[in-house]
Amino acid sequence: MAHRVSPWALEAGQELLQRLPADERLILPALQAVQQHFGYVPKEAVAQVAVTLNVSVADVHGVLTYYHELRTTPPAPITVAVCVAEACQASGSRELVAHLETEIAPLGGRSADGVVDLVEVFCLGNCALGPAALINERLVGRLTATTLESALSDARVAL
């Protein structure tokens, strides 16, 4: 399943914000809804969230920049989120990351063909079967360079 990215559209933005349930008319859920729809939070959406929720643009910007997962630029179709926390370190994630950095991109970067983002994540809850990664929403465990490559090519095929 690829990340869906769609260009900013005022009407779509307005509609999804109006559709938020009453108890989710809050900054974080609003930004999450925007990101789910557009794939990221376009800068035009910040003002719109502020107006819809009757809060300041600064408040929205503060929330947007606080959370690691909220993003202001479109993601690549595939995100490989590789666990770099202790349990996976104990199972060889440092070596795996070093390999991925030569094969894909530096952590936080995008592959040369623009298809894969490589990001770090702190724990995926698969700590007995590390190293682990989340490829879009698919959790993979007991990773080696080879098994990660094969999971990644599955994801490429699914695009």
Binding site: C83, A85, E86, A87, F122, C123, G125, N126, C127, A128
Partner: peptide, 10 residues
């Protein structure tokens, strides 16, 4: 459940 090494909640 953010602690590395924990997965019981999940």
């Amino acid at each position: 459940e953010g602690d590395s090494g924990t997965f019981a909640d999940r």
